[in-house]
Design a protein around this nucleic acid. Structure first.
Lengths: 211, 211
DNA sequence: TGCAAATGTCAACGCGTGTTGGCAAAATGG
DNA sequence: CCATTTTGCCAACACGCGTTGACATTTGCA
């Protein structure tokens, strides 16, 4: 059960491929480049992973399992959702497949399909879990598209004001907007506050903790 | 001044390159493919445009001049902004460079730079023109990132619920969210409420032209 | 220690790419 | 009507790519 020598090489290849795919996309990343970064011969990459496509698929394949995991102590559903989203992208347990997916989705059918599936099943489920009730699909998709646009600007395009935004401010601004979306089609079950907007919550047990 | 024969060929090449770059991105689009679609020899593409890079730059180069043009009779600033955005992407006078930019921004440095510039100058200006006053850069960037995420989901990924959304509903849902952003940091000059009457920015030289 | 399996290197193949120069056909103009 | 330019096609080059198979080296086990 000890880690054989090939396991170390395989993981070096995977590390290199993750980095390069995330940085340059699918087409511009070459087997030769991956091999060089991993310090071995290009033929090893093929031997261990079969083909460039297979390596890419493996690099991009990951578990979205705990996407609907519980969040920290932020106040509103939107804030909790955005915090979770942020944790998924940066921080310690960040998922390295996410930047790759976003970077390559516009040129790789496989990545686009994966991202689309992520959209239509997982994210929607997360949003409904946040809201505690069913959510209009179009509304949910719009929330998700906002997150995706944010990630695209922060991690891919690296727009200055978006890339440098402090996490807490991201949580505040984006969360506030998510809450707005959720409140627009009806009150939330256990109604946390969303910065005292005067939109019509008919029977909204809002607790006022605005400072 | 008469259109020479080569002009027709050049425009056929440009048409083909627009279509292919928008559909497959930069790397996966080949000179041979463009030539075939235009019905001529690959060498003609080089002769007329110099190189693939030059053709791409020319395909992606376009005028953003009237980005701050007036909008139609939607009620709130957000709705007017989103309507304008939608007109820029679909409809008659849509700009064919936009889908190409969005598709290739993640793999082409040139496209990414162009999109970044669009972000940091033009869009911000449009948003401030909508609000009728200065807007917090981070807030403006967030609004822009939301539009970008929407476009990415609708035109690139083609997420079902986003791609099929009726224009009026897009204007309503997204506009409402933009308005929320704008109201969060202070009242608008003439429209303090979300669904109030139209706002008219003070001393703006833009003339109104209804569609 | 000896031998087979695992691990790695090297050179090369076939392919598609962007790009080039030469040459035929068509258009142009005096 | 001929000479010149324009427009187009063809063949080919050099290059980098993914991939392959043969051969060297190292490792692991009996």
């Amino acid at each position: 059960m000890k880690p054989s020598k090939s396991d170390r090489t395989k993981s070096r290849i995977l590390d290199a491929s993750r980095t390069l795919f995330a940085q340059f996309g699918y087409e511009a990343t070459t087997i030769r480049g991956i091999a060089e970064k991993a310090g071995i011969d290009p033929s090893m990459v093929i031997r261990y992973f079969g083909s460039k496509d297979a390596l890419f698929a493996l690099t991009v394949d990951f578990e979205m399992g705990n996407v609907a995991a519980p969040m920290s102590g932020d106040r509103t559903p939107g804030e909790r959702g955005v915090r979770h989203f942020l944790r998924l992208w940066e921080g310690e347990e960040a998922n390295p497949a996410l930047p790759i997916l976003l970077r390559t989705a516009s040129s790789s059918t496989l990545a686009a399909e994966k991202l689309r599936m992520l959209f239509e099943s997982q994210i929607r489920r997360l949003i409904e879990h946040l809201a505690g009730r069913p959510v209009d699909p179009e509304r949910a998709a719009l929330i998700a598209s906002q997150m995706l646009g944010f990630a695209y600007c922060r991690y891919i395009l690296q727009i200055e004001s978006v890339a440098n935004m402090a996490p807490d401010r991201v949580v505040a601004l984006l969360g506030e907007c998510v809450d707005h979306h959720l409140q627009m089609e009806g009150p939330l079950p256990q109604g946390p506050d969303a910065h005292g907007d005067q939109s019509n919550p008919p029977s909204d047990p809002v607790k006022e903790e605005r400072s």
